[in-house]
């Protein structure tokens, strides 16, 4: 059933703004398929004459961009898994289990939110250098295995769950771990999805920390690799845009397929975080 809506003046505001937000991304994709001659053409063109793959080919032959992509996928996957396991167990512990020192421990976790990453990067770099993981992918994902935000998010969620189901499971003789895995976790799917989106966005897009921690160009993440490639090839626009497409399109596709989930994550960060 389609309701016919009258033309609204809001279109006059929304249409130009929507285009302003999305056109640069369209131009990014279009430029990645152009030849240098087309890019330098005057007046500039928005649409390539054909799908030229020169930019992608040159990028593939001049940089280990697929290795970078693989590194980013690996770092993000481990970060997401780390968050899902460590933050959900910790969130459950703080929400439901009464144990000595839990108040103090949770306070310490919350207090860390105030400390900016920029303050921590010098000592963390030195610490990682001492245990020998600087310049490895581990340096990129270890700080992302768990976060105060993730613990907080999961704790809030578990606090909002009614306790009756867990009581019933316990009466049936299930231990704490069994109850958690087979009763609580399945109910936590929305919160776990939010946690996944949050961690994926943060770890995939991070630049500063992997830039500091990794200097071997075969261990770069995509963001670091592109930034360093840009530093040497400032004018190779089709290659730069090809790299940009590789770095952003996976998340953009994920966003288009799971827009509700992404939006819920952003809203949660704002309203409850």
């Amino acid at each position: 059933m389609r309701v016919k809506l009258p033309f609204s003046p809001w279109h006059l505001l929304l249409m130009p703004l929507a285009l302003l937000f999305v056109l640069p991304l369209v131009q990014m994709v279009a430029t990645s398929f152009m030849t240098s001659a087309e890019i330098n053409h005057f007046p500039p063109k928005l649409i390539p004459t054909a799908l030229h793959l020169e930019g992608y080919r040159a990028l593939l032959s001049e940089t280990p961009v697929l290795t970078w992509l693989g590194n980013t996928v690996l770092v993000s996957t481990i970060s997401v898994l780390g968050h899902l396991i460590l933050c959900s167990t910790a969130g459950y512990g703080f929400a439901r289990l009464k144990f000595a020192g839990s108040g103090l421990a949770f306070l310490a976790v919350v207090a860390t939110v105030m400390i900016p990453m920029q303050l921590l990067m010098i000592p963390t770099y030195l610490m990682f250098a001492r245990i020998g993981i600087v310049d490895t992918l581990a340096a990129a994902f270890v700080p992302w295995l768990a976060s105060a935000f993730g613990i907080f998010l999961m704790r809030q969620f578990f606090l909002s769950l009614p306790g009756e189901l867990e009581e019933a499971a316990r009466l049936d003789g299930a231990g704490t771990w069994r109850t958690f895995v087979s009763v609580v976790l399945p109910l936590a799917r929305p919160a776990l999805a939010t946690l996944t989106v949050f961690t994926l966005l943060s770890s995939w897009n991070d630049l500063l920390w992997p830039l500091v921690a990794i200097s071997d160009d075969h261990r770069f993440t995509l963001q670091v690799g592109l930034a360093s490639f840009q530093g040497t090839r400032r004018t190779e626009w089709s290659q730069l845009m090809a790299g940009n497409v590789i770095a952003t399109v996976p998340l953009i596709l994920a966003f288009l397929f799971a827009q509700k989930r992404f939006v819920a994550t952003m809203a949660f960060t704002g309203l409850k975080g």
Partner: peptide
């Protein structure tokens, strides 16, 4: 359209 730039990394946004 309005939400999608948020998921692009700041690094890619800068290059673009």
């Amino acid at each position: 359209c309005i939400f999608v730039p948020y998921v692009a990394s700041a690094a890619a946004t800068g290059i673009l």
